[in-house]
Amino acid sequence: MTWNRNNAISEFVRRRRKEAGLTQLELADISGVGIRFIRELEQGKPNLMADKINQVLLFFGHTLTPTEISDETRRNLGS
């Protein structure tokens, strides 16, 4: 699997961290995850644990939630 630095979660966390004036290390400390996890999250590692992603997102007042996708997107998932 390839990493996607531009996925929605990676971009959200990176942008919100910078808006908060935090380094990756500071966000890791505040959210209770390791620095390696923050780096991998922001770099778009594809197989991170959802509970840890939620730990970081909760700091910004968000959580992972199911989102409906279009039929076209669903058809393209196998591409």
Rank of each mutant, 00 (worst) to 15 (best):
G21S: 08
V13L: 03
T65H: 10
L64R: 06
E26K: 08
L25Q: 15
R36N: 14
E68G: 10
E42N: 02
N4P: 07
R15K: 15
K18W: 05
N76D: 09
L57R: 04
D29Y: 00
I30N: 01
T65A: 11
P66Y: 05
T63M: 11
I35G: 02
H62G: 03
T63N: 14
W3R: 12
M49P: 11
E42D: 05
I38M: 04
N6G: 09
I69V: 13
L48T: 00
Q43W: 07
R16I: 00
V33M: 03
S10H: 02
E11A: 05
R74A: 10
G44H: 06
T2F: 09
K45Q: 11
N7W: 04
P46Y: 04
M1F: 02
S31Q: 03
F12C: 09
L22R: 00
A20F: 11
L64E: 07
A8G: 03
N47L: 04
R39M: 11
R75C: 02
E19F: 07
G21L: 13
A50V: 14
T67W: 07
N47D: 10
E19R: 10
L25W: 07
K18M: 15
I38K: 00
A28N: 01
R15Q: 07
F37H: 10
N76H: 12
E72L: 10
I53H: 08
